[in-house]
Amino acid sequence: MRIALAATCIADAMFPQAPRAVVTLLERLGHEVVFPAGQACCGQMHVNTGYLADAVPVVQNHVRTFAPVTDGEWDAVVVPSGSCTGSIRHQQSMVLERAGLHSEARAAAAVAELTYELSELLVDVLGVTDVGAWFPHRVTYHPTCHSLRMLGVGDKPERLLRAVEGLELAPLAEAEGCCGFGGTFSLKNAETSAAMLDDKVATVVDTGAEVLTAGDWSCLMHIGGGLSRGGTGVRPMHLAEILASTRESPVVPGRHGSGRSGATTEVAR
């Protein structure tokens, strides 16, 4: 398959290890990955903060960039984020529709139809749960709210994780509880956000896991920031990073935030 990667703005700028891992993983599975250079952001931050007019050019850019998927240029678009996929699927056409851009709204809906969150792409489209990964660590999985409720990815991420050789999956208590990130919520209601974070950090620590994983770096950034502040030693890693790890090219959980400063998480290719 020819798969276009929507890296997401936050991962592009802050957590490149996730989209890099997607590239490694999909290429290992025999697919071709392309990165359309015009992409920037899906517009979710603007929409969720209420700046719908400012979201319009951002959404337009996304739709324009990925429109070729509807002409068969690529077979699918993959996004290593549940909330960005959710925004693409449930908000983009609404934003354009409200701005009176009806044909662009239809184009957005058509692109969204062929856009998948990573675990959806793997399990539903590519039909794999065992991606041949090796990751000998104790891991706990946080189902992020948008993956869980907006997309309904269900247990797909856990099925993928269970198939990883050497991986020990530790169940997370109150897993479905929100971590308190909520985009600008973490700033506008900083105290409430922090209270939710404290509870999430406590349940993560209780699992005794070495690594916390999720399908979204935005939530991982939040929980990871709490885990680091608490000096817990638990490392946040994106699902893609774990699935990219093999015996031949192991990904080693780094010190802070999957060891981004060192070469430890370099995914060899």
Binding site: M14, F15, Q17, L197, G224, R229, G257, R260
Partner: peptide
Amino acid sequence: RSRDLMEPP
């Protein structure tokens, strides 16, 4: 105030 920020790459 309540959480660290991971170092940008």
